[in-house]
Amino acid sequence: MVCKMGTDMAKSGMMRCLALVTGTGLSLAVTGGQALAAGPSEPGLPQLDISTWPSQIFWLVVIFGVGYVMMAKVVTPKIGTVLEDRRTRLDGDLGKAREASAEAAKIRAEYEADLEAARNDAAAFARQAAAEAAEKAAAVEGKADKKLASKVASAEKKLAEAKAEAMENLNTVAAEAALDAVKGLTGLKATKAQADKIVKATAKAMAPQEAN
């Protein structure tokens, strides 16, 4: 195996260089490969057949080169753009959402302030209305009281007048009754003036008793 490598190496300087550098790393693989590749017809590990190396290196360089250009010019810029667009879009949307949220909070605060002011206004208005109503009621009540009092007063006055008149009339009736009674009992004629005088005196004498 190693001999074969040696003869082949003479073919190309490049191969020799590579084989020398890989030599250390390969020594283990070579022994392993020889053990695996049992049988006299087997030449050993196909990997160590350096006649295939130029072709493999050539196609590796060509294909990897083409792959690199494709990845660098088409694939990675495309994926990068899509990811970048998404990131900016998400950031923008998040910013917008944050703004909207702040706006909503502001509107809510305003609304609550309005509500509070309206509540206060309503309370003040209600208080004022209640006060006005109470005042009006008091005024009406005062007027009614006064009217009532004056009515009572006039009624009492009338009553007193009626009483006095009634008392006057009563005296006259008593005098006449007394005259009639004197005439009927005694046949004497008493003058009206006499009778009045007596009735008045009697009434005067009785008045303190009535008061009691």
């Binding site: 190309s12 006649s51 295939t52 130029p54 072709s55 493999q56 050539f58 196609w59 590796l60 294909i63 990897f64 083409v66 792959g67 494709m70 990845m71 088409v74 694939v75 495309k78 994926i79 753009t81 899509v82 667009d85």
Partner: peptide, 30 residues
């Protein structure tokens, strides 16, 4: 130098072609 296109080269080409087609197709809509 023998630079024949071999089974090894074919699978190098497939690795790049399959990955390239996959990545480009997957990202076409973006």
């Amino acid at each position: 130098y023998d630079i024949s296109f071999t089974n090894s080269s074919l699978f190098m080409l497939l690795a790049i072609a399959v990955s390239g087609v996959f990545l480009v197709t997957a990202m076409r809509q973006g």
